[in-house]
Design a protein around this nucleic acid. Structure first.
Length: 473
RNA sequence: GGCGACAUAGCCAAGUGGCAAGGCAGAGGACUGCAAAUCCUCCAUCCCCGGUUCGAAUCCGGGUGUCGCCUCCA
């Protein structure tokens, strides 16, 4: 039983899809005018974990995440760079995919670009005009918010109060200050498409209504995004979609919290924007992923390099636990589990239970990860015990970490690589030196290997080695 | 002005009525030729003041502080 916090009702609710066993999930993706930053990353990682967990729990998930490839930011950036809007989109979609892959974010089932769905967008606007929810003004089309009584239900705002808060200059032609644009009349030199109202381009909000319903039908199960999209973007999507269909647009609205930088809002003007692209040069992107999942997705979160270091140390502990198990497998026997191992298998089941329960409870990754740490302590003790381990048990333990990681996606569960012969020989020479109590030689070899990224650990069961990406600090 | 979030150890962070998870850092110990990895032990009157209750981090009221949204934004 999965429970999710629904922004619409401000409560955790039991997930009940429209169609049993299936989930239609739509998430607002990036505007592809630049590399995406760590704040975006938090949200995209959340979508990915949500999607993976729903699949893990047996739902057939259809996950759609769009690219916004036409808006003011796109047009301005393309002009600055002296390239076409389409060229800009192609470049940063490619970059998005690379960075997302580095974060172990799996590609959505569909990733439509807004400009590929202009006919659907136009059809939607036409329907809104027919139903009296939209009006044309000299080549622009606006949504008439007063025609939609539920306007404000997601952000829990009253239309009159919203109007009081309006800070930008009013367009006197609009019927209500909150009316928003569905179709924008062409400006010279900007991309445009033919429409019943003349040449122009879609407003920002309409694309998500058009594409989500195109792929997932009139009622989505889950619609997700960052907090800042609650108003106006998602509020407007509801007005557009429900105005058209007369049906509930999305059953569950999920919103991820902000990521602040050194306790301040991330912004270009403060110069504190960290892109994933930039960070990848310094940190394993899986550390970033682990960091993002170490807090609950709805909590506001702070980002700093110091915190990333903490995350790196913590993640290393989990990776070591898995590594130690894999190494132990080489030395294990084929016999049945003894009593200690039976107890450990029991604890494994409890850990799995706790992991699943935590994830089911509004995707509580922090709590789920705690279950992994607790299990890691037990498995570390186990692999260090004086008598040998049953391979059956060790395999089950490794498999569980892999299973958990099929959702979390930050562990390094690869099988240890084979060593080159030369290195194996060095390790053997060091073992010999140690036997002869020639510790100077033994330590020299160990240092030499360390420089080549191989760390030796002497355990009671013999030497153990691991490969690290680079020379550790 | 309207709406809302958050406050738990040096740091990060779960926990929404029944003895305060987990991680990072730190201290001590074990193991080791030395390391590394690992294990064990130690490290919190849960922002303040009231209230409800046998019992409150958790519920209610009142403060204080931080932050966010109200047509750029993940």
């Amino acid at each position: 039983m999965i429970r999710l916090y629904n922004t619409l009702t401000r409560k955790k609710e039991i997930l009940q899809p429209v169609e049993e066993g299936k989930i239609g999930l739509y998430a607002c993706g990036p505007t592809v005018y630049d590399y995406f930053h760590v704040g975006n990353a938090r949200v995209f990682i959340f979508f990915d974990v949500l999607r993976r967990h729903l699949s893990y729990r047996g739902y057939k998930v259809t996950f759609v995440q769009n690219y916004t490839d036409i808006d003011d930011k796109m047009i301005n950036r393309a002009a600055e760079m002296g390239i076409t809007v389409d060229g800009l989109a192609k470049k940063f979609i490619r970059c998005y995919k690379e960075d997302a892959a580095a974060l172990h974010i799996e590609p959505p089932d569909y990733e439509p670009r807004a400009t590929e769905y202009i006919p659907q967008i136009i059809a939607l606007i036409q329907k809104l005009i027919e139903k009296g929810h939209a009006y044309e003004l000299d080549g622009d089309v606006y949504y008439d918010v007063e025609s939609f009584p539920d306007y404000g239900k997601l952000s829990h705002q009253d239309l009159d109060e919203l109007a009081l808060g309006v800070r930008v200059e009013l367009d006197e032609r609009k019927r209500h200050p909150m009316d928003f644009v569905l179709w924008k009349k062409e400006k010279p030199g900007e991309p445009s498409w033919d429409s019943p109202w003349g040449k122009g381009r879609p407003g920002w909000h309409i694309e998500c209504s058009a594409m989500s319903m195109h792929f997932l039908g009139e009622t989505l199960d889950i619609h997700a995004g960052g907090r800042d999209l609650i108003f106006p973007h998602h509020e407007n999507e509801i007005a557009q979609s429900e105005g058209t269909t007369g049906r509930e647009f999305a059953r569950y609205w999920l919103h991820a919290g902000y990521l602040n930088i050194d306790s301040q809002k991330m912004s270009k003007s403060l110069g504190n924007v960290f892109t994933v692209r930039g960070l990848r040069q310094k940190y394993d992107p899986r550390v970033l992923r682990f960091f993002m999942l170490s807090a609950h997705y709805r909590s506001p979160m702070n980002f700093s390099e110091e915190l990333l270091q903490q995350a790196a140390s913590a993640l290393e502990r989990l990776n070591n636990a898995v590594f130690n198990l894999q190494d132990c497998l080489k030395k294990s026997h084929d016999g049945p589990p003894d009593d200690e191992e039976k107890a450990l298998l029991q604890f494994l089941e409890e850990s799995r239970e706790k992991f699943i329960q935590s994830m089911d409870d509004d995707i509580n990754t922090a709590d789920a990860i705690a279950a992994l740490f607790e299990l890691a302590r037990s498995t570390n003790s186990y692999v260090n015990r004086s008598h040998s381990q049953s391979s059956e048990v060790v395999e089950k333990l490794v498999q569980f970490f892999q299973e958990a990681d099929s959702i979390l996606g930050f562990l390094d569960t690869r099988q240890p690589e084979e060593l080159e012969g030369e290195i194996e020989e060095l390790i053997a020479r060091r073992e010999e030196a140690r036997r002869e109590k020639n510790f100077a030689l033994a330590d020299a070899i160990r240092d030499q290997l360390r420089e080549r990224g191989i760390i030796l650990e002497d355990t009671p069961q013999g030497v153990r080695w691991k490969v690290v990406a680079e020379e550790p600090k």
